[in-house]
Amino acid sequence: MASMIIVRKAAISFGKEKVLKNIDLDVNEGEIFGLLGPSGSGKTTLVKMITGILEGDQGEIFIKDQKVPSLELMKSIGYMAQSDALYQELTAKENLEFIAAIYGLKRQERKKAIQEVLEIVDLTDHMDKVVKDFSGGMKRRLSLAASLMHKPDLLILDEPTVGIDPVLRQSIWSELRKLKNNGMTILVTTHVMDEAEKCDRLAMLRDGYIIACDTPEKLKENQKVDSLEEAFLAYGRNEK
């Protein structure tokens, strides 16, 4: 299978603190890849580096064989940050129109794309509502819609289901699977174990290192445990 993301020996430090130390990572085309780790383990930093917002001190990152960062590559990446990056004063539609224009979608395409993504996240009825009046879950879904506007090949989601109720979490995951079936590669960070379970493959991040990387089943098998949580702890012990 072809690689979508290749990370080689990536390292970054903020001031004296080394946040990521020597990261190697391969994400295949068309899979849902999970980055699992406790908060502060460097998940957000790593996805920001892959997106091209941050640049590391060492190492290289390639997406579709092109070196990151590149404005050209950003056209084919959809990024949903941890915070809902929405303009509170604007309506849902206006928020999407803005993002669409930034990605250079033509007027006709824009309309169609907005309809499509609003349907995916089930917000069509609320498109003329001002975002300020949205509930937390609706904002989260709108953020997801905004990152899908330009039909990216690679979708990067930073903790997409934080603060979202179980029903909505289910529906977001079923959407992600649909997108994957349409050929999209999805990189998702999480610190919730049952969510990690839903990924095709998983990398466990701890203290700036990747301590394990495989399918959820294999990870459990290798450590002879029943849950990912136990596997994570076991890998952590081995590391030391």
């Binding site: 091209g52 990024y79 990056a85 929405l86 250079g104």
Partner: peptide, 14 residues
């Protein structure tokens, strides 16, 4: 502070 700058910077905008 509301994170839209980061979102904006993940797009090809200069």
């Amino acid at each position: 502070t509301q994170g839209t700058l980061e979102k904006l910077l993940s797009t090809p905008i200069k």
